[in-house]
């Protein structure tokens, strides 16, 4: 049992939200439009939790750009950030997000069980959370886990 425990990554806290509908929320987008959980209906989406103060998010950004290029719908959740720096970030590094929700007090992130950025959720057409990835997405994560799962869910 100890060996099994040691072989697991303790930072990968399993999320009880996988298999559950997305939590309800009322947020503004970066541009000021009100949005709620219905944004996840009808299409398989990624929810990517990020912030401009998060260095790993910078490392991950390239993968997100590639995913967006392949037609993956990505919703951003800008966590405890400043609007101006977020806008500057997207101008500098490119914008992979269809929409960026602005969670300045981090309360919505608590409802999603977020405890560190970046975190990425895969949500299916019915708005059910199917997968949670903690930490930056690597090329390997993208090709081996995320893209196959999105493809499978999109069928």
């Amino acid at each position: 049992m100890l060996l099994v425990g040691l072989s697991k990554d303790p930072s990968q806290v399993p999320s009880p939200l996988v298999g559950k509908p997305v939590p309800t929320f009322q947020l503004e987008t970066l541009t000021g439009t009100p949005q709620d959980q219905n944004i996840f209906n009808q299409q398989v989406s990624l929810l990517n939790v990020w912030a401009t103060w998060c260095q790993s998010c910078r490392a991950e950004h390239e993968q997100l750009m590639l995913l967006a290029k392949q037609g993956v719908r990505i919703i951003g959740l800008d966590y405890k950030d400043e609007r101006e720096s977020a806008e500057a970030w997207l101008t500098d590094l490119g914008d992979p997000y269809e929409t960026v929700l602005f969670d300045d007090d981090g309360v919505t992130a608590i409802d999603w069980g977020v405890y560190g950025t970046p975190e990425t959720f895969i949500v299916d057409q019915q708005g059910i959370i199917r997968y949670k990835h903690i930490g930056p997405i690597s090329k390997q994560d993208m090709t081996e886990i995320i893209l196959p799962l999105i493809e499978q869910l999109s069928l």
Binding site: P10, A51, Q55, Y79, G106, I110, Y115, G116, T117, P118
Partner: peptide, 22 residues
């Protein structure tokens, strides 16, 4: 949750404070 693993350097340590406020 954040403090359990130092390697998550980018995790926002303020989370513990937010959870306490909650």
């Amino acid at each position: 949750l954040v403090c359990q693993n130092q390697s998550l350097a980018d995790s926002n340590a303020a989370l513990a404070q937010d959870l306490r406020s909650e």
